[in-house]
Amino acid sequence: MQGVVKVNSALNMRSGPGSNYGVIGTLRNNDKVEIIKEVDGAYEIRFNGKVGYASKSYITIVN
């Protein structure tokens, strides 16, 4: 499943599905991501070869 990031500035990509996990990357508006699955209000995603988590509130599914 594919998604597009929709933010005003940037969205943190984290090592786990919550803000208490470390930041492993930054997503920008209109970045395209692969959605692997939904976990606790976040999506597990793949972006630029990395797998991490981002809030589903800022990712629009575009299948």
Rank of each mutant, 00 (worst) to 15 (best):
M1Y: 11
M1K: 12
M1P: 07
M1H: 10
M1S: 09
M1I: 13
M1N: 08
M1F: 11
Q2N: 10
Q2D: 08
Q2E: 11
Q2S: 11
G3T: 01
G3S: 02
G3Y: 02
G3P: 01
G3C: 08
G3V: 03
G3Q: 01
G3W: 03
G3K: 01
G3I: 02
V4L: 10
V4D: 02
V4I: 14
V4T: 07
V4W: 05
V5F: 00
V5Y: 00
V5G: 05
V5A: 03
V5W: 00
K6G: 05
K6E: 06
K6S: 11
K6F: 06
V7C: 15
V7Y: 06
V7H: 11
V7T: 15
N8R: 14
N8H: 13
N8M: 10
N8K: 15
N8S: 13
N8G: 12
N8E: 13
N8Y: 08
S9Y: 11
S9W: 10
S9G: 15
S9R: 14
S9M: 11
S9K: 14
S9E: 13
S9A: 11
A10F: 15
A10S: 14
A10Q: 14
A10T: 14
A10K: 14
A10E: 14
L11C: 15
L11G: 05
L11H: 05
L11P: 03
N12R: 12
N12P: 15
N12D: 14
N12L: 14
N12E: 15
N12W: 07
N12I: 14
N12M: 12
N12T: 11
M13E: 02
M13W: 06
M13T: 02
M13F: 10
R14L: 11
R14H: 14
R14K: 07
R14Y: 15
R14F: 13
S15N: 09
S15A: 11
S15E: 11
S15Y: 06
S15W: 06
S15L: 08
S15P: 03
G16Q: 06
G16P: 02
G16A: 07
G16C: 07
G16F: 04
G16H: 08
G16R: 05
G16K: 05
P17W: 06
P17H: 05
P17L: 08
P17G: 03
P17S: 05
P17E: 03
P17Q: 04
P17V: 08
P17R: 04
G18S: 10
G18C: 07
G18W: 02
G18P: 03
G18F: 03
G18E: 07
G18A: 07
G18M: 04
G18V: 02
G18T: 10
G18Q: 05
G18Y: 04
G18K: 07
S19E: 15
S19G: 11
S19N: 14
S19W: 12
S19K: 14
S19L: 14
S19I: 13
S19R: 12
S19F: 12
N20S: 12
N20W: 12
N20K: 11
N20P: 04
N20G: 13
Y21L: 05
Y21M: 08
Y21G: 10
Y21V: 05
Y21S: 15
Y21A: 15
G22S: 14
G22M: 14
G22C: 13
G22T: 14
G22I: 14
V23F: 05
V23A: 06
V23C: 08
V23G: 03
V23T: 09
I24A: 03
I24D: 02
I24V: 12
I24S: 04
I24Q: 03
I24F: 01
I24L: 07
I24G: 01
G25M: 09
G25L: 07
G25I: 10
G25Y: 06
G25V: 09
G25W: 05
G25K: 04
T26Y: 09
T26G: 03
T26I: 15
T26R: 11
T26W: 09
L27R: 01
L27D: 01
L27W: 00
L27V: 04
L27M: 06
L27S: 01
L27P: 01
L27K: 01
R28S: 10
R28G: 07
R28A: 10
R28L: 11
R28C: 14
R28Y: 13
N29A: 08
N29E: 07
N29M: 08
N29C: 11
N30P: 02
N30L: 09
N30E: 09
N30W: 08
N30A: 07
N30D: 10
N30K: 07
D31W: 04
D31P: 01
D31N: 04
D31M: 05
D31E: 07
D31K: 01
D31R: 02
K32N: 09
K32G: 04
K32W: 12
K32L: 15
K32Q: 12
V33H: 00
V33E: 00
V33A: 01
V33I: 06
V33Q: 00
E34V: 11
E34F: 11
E34S: 08
E34K: 05
E34L: 12
E34N: 06
E34Q: 10
I35E: 00
I35Y: 02
I35F: 02
I35R: 00
I35N: 00
I36C: 07
I36Q: 04
I36F: 07
I36N: 03
I36P: 00
I36L: 14
K37C: 10
K37V: 05
K37N: 12
K37H: 08
K37D: 10
K37P: 00
E38D: 06
E38A: 08
E38Y: 05
E38I: 09
E38T: 06
V39Y: 10
V39C: 10
V39E: 06
V39Q: 06
V39G: 03
D40K: 10
D40Y: 10
D40W: 08
D40G: 12
G41K: 06
G41A: 06
G41I: 04
G41N: 11
G41D: 12
A42P: 00
A42I: 11
A42G: 07
A42H: 15
A42K: 10
Y43H: 00
Y43S: 00
Y43P: 00
Y43N: 00
Y43C: 01
Y43I: 02
Y43M: 03
Y43K: 00
E44L: 15
E44P: 00
E44I: 11
E44R: 06
E44S: 02
E44C: 11
E44V: 11
E44D: 00
E44Q: 13
I45D: 00
I45A: 00
I45N: 00
I45C: 02
I45G: 00
I45W: 00
R46L: 12
R46A: 09
R46N: 10
R46P: 01
R46G: 04
F47S: 04
F47P: 00
F47D: 01
F47A: 07
F47M: 04
F47W: 11
N48H: 10
N48E: 13
N48L: 09
N48P: 00
N48W: 05
G49V: 02
G49N: 09
K50V: 13
K50Q: 11
K50G: 05
K50Y: 07
K50W: 05
K50M: 12
K50S: 07
K50T: 10
K50I: 13
K50A: 07
V51R: 08
V51K: 08
V51A: 06
V51L: 11
V51P: 04
V51W: 06
V51S: 08
V51I: 13
G52C: 04
G52T: 01
G52I: 03
G52D: 02
Y53N: 01
Y53K: 02
Y53C: 03
Y53Q: 02
Y53W: 14
Y53R: 02
Y53F: 12
A54P: 02
A54Y: 01
A54Q: 01
A54N: 01
A54M: 06
A54D: 01
A54I: 14
S55A: 11
S55T: 11
S55K: 10
S55E: 15
S55I: 08
S55W: 09
S55C: 14
S55Q: 11
K56Y: 03
K56T: 09
K56M: 10
K56G: 04
K56H: 04
K56R: 06
K56C: 07
K56W: 03
K56E: 04
S57T: 12
S57E: 15
S57D: 15
S57R: 14
S57Q: 15
S57Y: 14
S57W: 12
Y58K: 08
Y58L: 09
Y58E: 10
Y58G: 14
I59M: 01
I59W: 00
I59Q: 00
I59P: 01
I59E: 01
I59R: 00
T60I: 14
T60N: 10
T60Q: 14
T60H: 14
T60W: 13
T60E: 15
I61A: 06
I61D: 03
I61N: 04
I61W: 03
I61Y: 04
I61T: 06
I61E: 05
V62N: 07
V62T: 11
V62M: 11
V62C: 12
V62F: 08
V62H: 07
V62A: 08
V62K: 05
V62Q: 09
V62D: 09
N63F: 09
N63Q: 13
